[in-house]
Design a protein around this nucleic acid. Structure first.
Length: 264
DNA sequence: ATGGTTGAACCTCAA
């Protein structure tokens, strides 16, 4: 079993379009496990060789044009699951889960891309709420096994007022509506720990800024990407951060990577 | 600010 393990989540907004940014970031941040969202390509189009050359094992759930999630791990991946139970009609590639085999131990990890919801009150917003409920139902089951487990990804929900640039103006809008925040809190009430907030109770840091309206230079962001830890994983948490540097570089994703380090 | 930008694929949608 390794002494420490670093895990990151990043919505890259097209893995093929973002490959130079991704490889540059991994060069400077050689994390053990990377959870990706919004691949926007099928499995066959994923830049497999480039990531394998960096020592990553891959579990990919791709989809043409939209969605797509992956787990990249320097340790072997087993028991890969691509479906989020609870809605047989939902074929969007928004969830992947695997067991990472550490030497003498195991870690369950999942990469999730929660639907954006588009507009409060729309069908897509209802789908978002039900997706969050399905996520809670599955992880309520997982937590019964008392494993070291990490659920990371783009949740498209900012949990607290400090997590948005203007909580009064944004209250009730998509990604910061009370109904969504309640469903994200339901995951926390199961016992899952928000890694960043656990170690930085007051700090305002964002993980997403809209491409439109100069949001990044204006500081108009939200913290909607999260690493949620099982209690057993939270007991090992020693470091958590959001690296907003990639958001300021050429042809960026609209999201920044979120990182946590576990020490065993 | 009922705008604005980006990616993929198509002449528009999802975010």
């Amino acid at each position: 079993m390794p002494q420490t393990l670093t895990i990151a989540t990043w919505n890259v907004n097209s893995v093929r379009s973002r490959l130079p940014n991704l490889l540059a970031w991994l060069g400077a941040n050689p994390v053990d496990i990377l959870l990706l969202q919004e691949l926007k390509c099928i499995k066959e189009q994923f830049p497999r060789m480039e990531l394998e050359d960096l020592g990553y094992n891959l579990a990919i759930h791709g989809q043409k044009t939209f969605n797509g999630v992956a787990i990249c791990s320097k340790y072997p991946l087993d028991d890969i699951i691509c479906e989020l139970p609870g809605d047989e009609s939902d074929s969007a590639a928004r969830y992947i889960e695997a067991v990472v085999s550490l030497k003498g131990a195991a870690l369950r990890v999942a990469s999730v891309y929660v639907p954006n919801g588009q507009e409060v009150g729309s069908d897509k917003f209802a789908y978002k709420l039900s997706f969050l409920e399905r996520l809670s139902a599955l992880w309520a089951q997982h937590l019964r096994h008392h494993e070291i487990a990490v659920l990371g990804g783009d949740f498209n929900v900012a949990p607290y007022p400090v997590d948005v640039y203007d909580p009064e103006k944004l209250d009730g809008s998509v990604c910061y509506h009370p109904e969504e925040r309640q469903r994200l809190r339901a995951l926390l009430h199961l016992g899952m720990v928000d890694a960043f907030r656990q170690l930085h109770p007051q700090m305002q840091k964002f993980s997403w800024w809209d491409y439109r309206g100069g949001s990044y230079p204006r500081g108009h962001g939200m913290r909607i990407d999260h690493l949620l830890l099982s209690p057993e994983a939270a007991d090992c948490l020693v470091r958590a951060s959001i690296d907003e540097n990639p958001r300021g570089e050429e042809k960026p994703s609209d999201h920044a990577p979120v990182i946590a380090t576990l020490k065993f």
